[in-house]
């Protein structure tokens, strides 16, 4: 009896490993070594052109004690991620539900709403965005017609510049919208029919059925968007370049400057590993909390 159990277990192990084999091969071949090397580099001084030199903890010490810009960009990135991600998810869920009905027009609208996400962080977007938020730009014109102050210099003020990037992030909600759309497709229609028979209204249906059934997808979007938010690079890099006074300087942009503009790959690696630590910690917390609010069919 005991023996049969181990046989089954061994078979299950084998099957599992066969299925994830592509990942294991790719991980060992292409990813594991670079990850280890970057960890090693974080303890060195490395200018890319010559061999790295071991400097112990000095990168980390400099980072935490004497580099003021490091903490500035860390705070900017935290603010950006924690503000833009919830707003973006809310927006994309609303739009996904609005366009749920299988009508032709909805398909067209969905394609249109997806366009900004295709544009990503292209140079075209950088130019357009500066134009929109310029003092004499479209945003101020609209505010003016609504009778609000219309002379705000969005890009030059330290308290407003970051919002231009947050608005951009929300505006590019296409990818989460798409994931929510496919998530909504998976909810069985009988659940709604049953609820309707019980006399539940739209709002009750949303909170009783849609939201719980969607939690795995919400969880995915949350984890993925937060990771992306922390690693955000292009919008800060191409639109504001971190200005004014580093108030839009994202962590990844500063890391990139260190690595390639100042040839301090060792320091950049140390920054990357600190980021990894923070993001991993956050992800672990999210996974731990998911037991309480994410509803899986499989336990």
């Amino acid at each position: 009896m005991q023996q049969r159990k181990t046989v089954i277990r061994r078979r299950e192990n084998l099957e599992g490993y066969l299925f994830i084999m592509p990942f294991i091969i790719g991980f060992l071949l292409f990813t594991a070594v670079p990850i280890c090397v970057s960890f090693y580099l974080s303890f060195t001084k490395y200018d890319i052109l010559s061999s790295p030199r071991w400097t112990g903890l000095s990168n980390y010490i400099k980072m935490f004690t004497s580099d003021r810009v490091f903490w500035t960009c860390f705070k900017v990135t935290l603010f950006y991620a924690f503000v833009s991600v919830p707003l973006k998810l809310f927006m994309s869920l609303m739009v996904a539900m609005l366009l749920m009905k299988p009508k032709l027009e909805n398909g067209i609208f969905r394609a249109i709403y997806y366009i900004p996400s295709i544009l990503g962080g292209s140079i075209a977007i950088a130019v357009v965005w500066c134009r929109l938020f310029a003092t004499d730009g479209a945003i101020n014109n609209i505010l003016g017609t609504l009778g609000l102050p219309d002379d705000i210099s969005w890009l030059s003020r330290t308290d407003t510049a970051i919002w231009t990037l947050i608005v951009l992030a929300i505006w590019q909600f296409g990818s989460s919208m798409l994931i929510f759309t496919s998530g909504l497709q998976q909810i069985p229609t009988e659940l709604y029919e049953a609820a309707r028979v019980d006399g539940a209204g739209k709002i009750v249906q949303f909170f009783r059925i849609t939201l719980p059934m969607l939690t795995p997808v919400i969880f995915f979007n949350l984890v993925q968007q937060l990771i992306n938010g922390f690693m955000a690079f292009t919008s800060s890099y191409v639109i504001t370049g971190g200005a004014p006074l580093n108030s839009t300087l994202f962590y990844s942009v500063y890391l990139y400057q260190q690595a390639f503009q100042f040839s301090k790959m060792g320091y950049a690696s140390a920054m990357a590993w600190f980021m990894l630590f923070v993001v991993a910690l956050m992800t672990i917390l999210l996974f731990k909390s998911s037991d309480r609010w994410v509803f899986y069919e499989t336990k």
Binding site: L18, M21, P22, I24, I25, L28, L29, A32, V33, C36, V37, Y40, L41, Y46, S50, S51, P52
Partner: peptide, 28 residues
């Protein structure tokens, strides 16, 4: 030039990749 330590790690990875490709699954 490739970072002293990396060479060793790389060798290890290359051997592993050898094993990996020997044990080919259908996906591979």
């Amino acid at each position: 030039k490739l970072l002293g330590i990396a060479v060793a790690t790389l060798m290890m990875a290359e051997t592993m990749c050898g094993c990996g490709s020997a044990a080919q699954t259908t996906e591979n």
